[in-house]
């Protein structure tokens, strides 16, 4: 199935990626194609995963959408604007793989940081930060410092901070890959609950098939050398999703389908 052909009626496209290619130079000066010929339309309010083995260009693709990386070929439009215009309007929330917290700021002040960049008043910031911390269940830790939190809690602060600016689009780069299974599953549920409540568009990078299937409306499978979009799998599991769905045959069939869509049929 071609990604560009994918349509989901009546909802407008939020992100349109056309013939996207990124070429890096390695240290010998030779060209390395990180990604090539990627076409993808993402609907408003959709949860889309980018799945693939290490080095297939998932991060590069996400960074292009966020305006952190200049594409070599093709273009990206977000709500009809360039990524730069969208970024300057604070419409992106980017959740990095590591929490990237500032250790001299309390948890609450970390969440307030992007709001400071938006010139919100002290009171606005404080109220918003409290709201976000409540959403991720960290109200009692507002005045702690990041080094006093566990990895999972730090990652929740990271998410709270990204959501605080009310972004239209949430870009997440393997946000849970460093976490244990228990924390991860808890955060999956949290993320889906927040997503349902706020109706954001989420582009979620992962290399975990179960994670991608459980969370997404669609899973985009990327293949390496050069990185390209090799398949898009619709996940028609009902919502809201619950952890026990992972035991159902429908879920396992989709996992199998995604796994088989990797070129050569294997992915490890």
């Amino acid at each position: 199935m071609n990604a560009a052909e994918y349509t989901r009626n009546d909802v407008p496209d939020e992100i349109v990626i056309r013939d996207l290619g990124v070429t890096f130079q390695d240290n010998k000066g030779e060209d390395v194609q990180a990604i090539t010929g990627v076409n993808l339309n993402i609907k408003k309010g959709e949860f889309v995963s980018l799945l693939g083995p290490s080095g297939c260009g998932k991060t590069t693709l996400l960074r292009c959408v966020a305006d952190l990386q200049e594409p070599t070929d093709g273009d990206i439009h977000v709500e009809g604007m360039t990524p730069k215009e969208v970024r300057l309007q604070h419409k992106f929330g980017f959740v990095f793989q590591s929490p990237v917290l500032f250790d001299w700021r309390t948890v609450k002040k970390n969440v307030e940081l992007p709001l400071e960049m938006m010139y919100q008043t002290k009171q606005q910031r404080s109220e918003r930060a409290d709201e976000m911390l409540e959403m991720v269940g960290l109200t009692n830790f507002a005045n702690h410092f990041p080094n006093q939190l566990s990895g999972g809690m730090q990652q929740r602060v990271n998410i709270a901070r990204a959501l605080g600016i009310r972004p239209d689009i949430l870009l997440m780069d393997e946000p849970f890959s460093a976490l244990d299974e228990f924390t991860k599953e808890k955060l999956h549920e949290d993320l889906l609950r927040i997503w349902r409540k706020t109706n954001k568009t989420i582009l979620f990078v992962t290399h975990n098939i179960q994670e991608a299937v459980f969370l997404s409306d669609r899973v985009c499978v990327l293949s390496p050398h050069p990185g390209r979009l090799s398949a898009v799998v619709d996940i028609d599991l009902p919502r809201p999703r619950t952890l026990d769905m992972k035991e159902t045959p429908a879920f396992n069939q989709l996992v199998l389908k995604v796994r088989n869509s990797f070129e050569g049929g294997s992915f490890s």
Binding site: R87, F92, F94
Partner: peptide, 10 residues
Amino acid sequence: DKYDLMFTYA
């Protein structure tokens, strides 16, 4: 990472 974060927030 920290530069990227600040860049994302314009």
